[in-house]
């Protein structure tokens, strides 16, 4: 059965753009096999993103070294980042950056991870959508705010992990609108989705591709998207942004990659270049389009600034909702 993914050639333009970007720094390739350390279990979004990069890098000869994606899951990604923090200067290990890498140290009161590693790149972003159950009385974000104002704490959100992106976004909405919502954490995003689909709660956040499934199957009613502009796809263009609805919250979930502390800058520059090359491939752009992710890639020092800014947001929100130690 031939698959149609290869026909989606949105990549051409992007390919030209980033192929033109060259680095002033010296670049040096590491030798030997590479481990992409992932703090999520196999099947989680960070895992899938890194496996996609690993596959493209090896398949297309962008990276000759064999790449292994190693799931060191558990402890809110701390098993993974503690492993990488213990390897200063190591050239063969990269750490996958997802929100728990930022939030777990804040929640547990341990030193920041992001301040200790060598930033390589911010790779992939996804907007988040807010859903309610199909037969709910809520029809807009304004209705949610009204309901939560009338009965503080009575509007429930089925979420993923405590301190996760949807928890942070819940906190942002609460503080922007001066309301209180009840966030119910689960073992994983999909466990939270089961609670939502079972009709046990009012609200649930999804990524764009998860949201598209809920819309197509009629099992969720979209209320808002938390981006600056609406999506352009037919099924999604009717979803108003939170800002349009008077709630000034823009929030993007992101994934990135970093290396152990004290990495040779030439190797860091090489990795940044390879990730850019991989992202420019047709294969990656097709994957991106299929999963409705974005890839606004920034690398090295720029990525460091990006991560630092995100860390500030996480710390601020987690402090406000009383989770920060």
């Amino acid at each position: 059965m031939p698959r149609l993914t290869h026909t989606l050639c949105v990549a051409a333009l992007c390919g030209v753009l980033s192929a033109g970007a060259t680095f002033a720094q010296d670049m040096r390739a590491p030798t030997g096999p590479i481990e992409f350390t992932v703090g999520a279990g196999a099947g989680g979004s960070p895992d899938i993103i890194m496996r996609t990069f690993a596959q493209i890098m090896n398949d297309q000869g962008i990276v000759e070294n064999p790449i292994v994606v190693q799931n060191r899951s558990g402890g809110g990604h701390s098993n993974a980042y503690n492993h990488v923090l213990g390897l200063p200067g190591d050239e063969n290990t990269l750490l996958t950056l997802a929100s728990p890498v930022f939030t777990t140290p804040i929640v547990q009161g341990t030193p920041s991870v992001i301040d200790q590693i060598t930033p390589i790149a911010a790779l992939v972003q996804s907007e988040l959508l807010l859903f309610t159950t199909p037969d709910s009385d809520l029809n807009s974000l304004a209705d949610v705010v009204a309901a939560a104002t009338e009965n503080p704490g009575r509007v429930r959100v089925a979420g993923g992990a405590s301190g996760g992106n949807d928890h942070v976004l819940t906190g942002l909405i609460e503080s922007t609108t001066g309301t209180t919502l009840t966030y119910i954490p689960h073992e994983s995003g999909s466990a939270g989705r089961a609670t939502f689909l079972g009709g046990n709660v009012e609200l649930h956040f999804t990524t764009v591709s998860e949201g598209l499934e809920l819309i197509a199957s009629g099992s969720g009613k979209p209320l808002a998207i938390f981006s600056a502009e609406r999506r352009t796809e037919d099924a999604l263009s009717g979803i108003a942004t939170a800002t349009e609805q008077g709630v000034d919250v823009i929030y993007t979930q992101f994934w990135g990659v970093g290396a152990p502390a004290d990495l040779d800058p030439a190797v860091a520059a090489w990795w940044a270049d390879r990730f850019q090359q991989a992202a420019a491939t047709e294969q990656f752009q097709a994957w991106l389009a299929e999963n409705l992710y974005r890839s606004d890639m920034v690398t090295l020092d720029e990525a460091g600034a990006y991560f630092a800014a995100e860390q500030d947001t996480f710390r601020e929100v987690l402090t406000r909702i009383g989770l920060a130690q």
Partner: peptide, 24 residues
């Protein structure tokens, strides 16, 4: 929705092969 760690990986495999799992 995966009911176990193993089905979560089956779902991941679907996604990596370019198939979006879900009610459809």
């Amino acid at each position: 929705i995966p009911g176990s760690a193993s089905t979560a990986i089956l779902l991941a495999a679907l996604i990596l092969h370019g198939i979006r799992p879900g009610p459809q």
